[in-house]
Amino acid sequence: MPQPNSVPLTLPYDAVSTVMEPADEDVISAVLRGETASFELLVNRYSPRLFATARRYARRESEVEDIVQEVWSKAFRKLRTFRGDAPFEHWLMRMAVRTCYDFLRNHQRSRETIISDLSDGETEWLDHFEAAPEQASETAEAARELIRRILDRLSPAARLVITLLEIEERSVKEIAALTGWSVPLVKVRAFRARAEMRRILKGLAREKYL
């Protein structure tokens, strides 16, 4: 008599297919053969990753959804161009990063935010940092809000580079592959991005203490 929790030696085909998720390549082939409904598997599999990426660049949830929707729409349209020499996830993430960059370029108005309008918490955190830099907690909500505001002030290219290079700690080569920029261009943009960020921080310090 088999135990209730024991795994049968042979599973019927349907049971196997529900346990083992089909590989991306198989799903893509099915979609390209006209089984459009299979695309939903990819959407389910990679949407969490796309949402996390989009939330790095957009604050409002409606904007985040628009970005992810746009990525899936592009992925579906261009699925035939996926050659399969790299994982589907890499191909999709390239599309996501480029869509986020387009979003940043189309929403540059947010850069007009006045950095001097610091909240009490942010001012307090900066005071704390000024008094004892090593003791100011980087996990404090005020620090998070402050860096979000500073990132909002950066130009689209600078924000993208700072996010990928410094926050997500990706290599220059990886960034080049994700953005479609050449390696020297990534280096130049990284240099300019750091300078831009330093300028904003300098402005912040001047406004606060002068």
């Binding site: 996390a52 790095r56 998070r144 979000r148 500073i150």
Partner: peptide, 22 residues
């Protein structure tokens, strides 16, 4: 204010603030 340190601290804050994947 030490801007280099502030930069590093804020980048650490951003790293600690991993976006939700919901």
């Amino acid at each position: 204010m030490k801007l280099g340190e502030l930069h590093d601290k804020l980048i650490l804050a951003a790293r600690a603030d991993a976006p939700d994947c919901g």
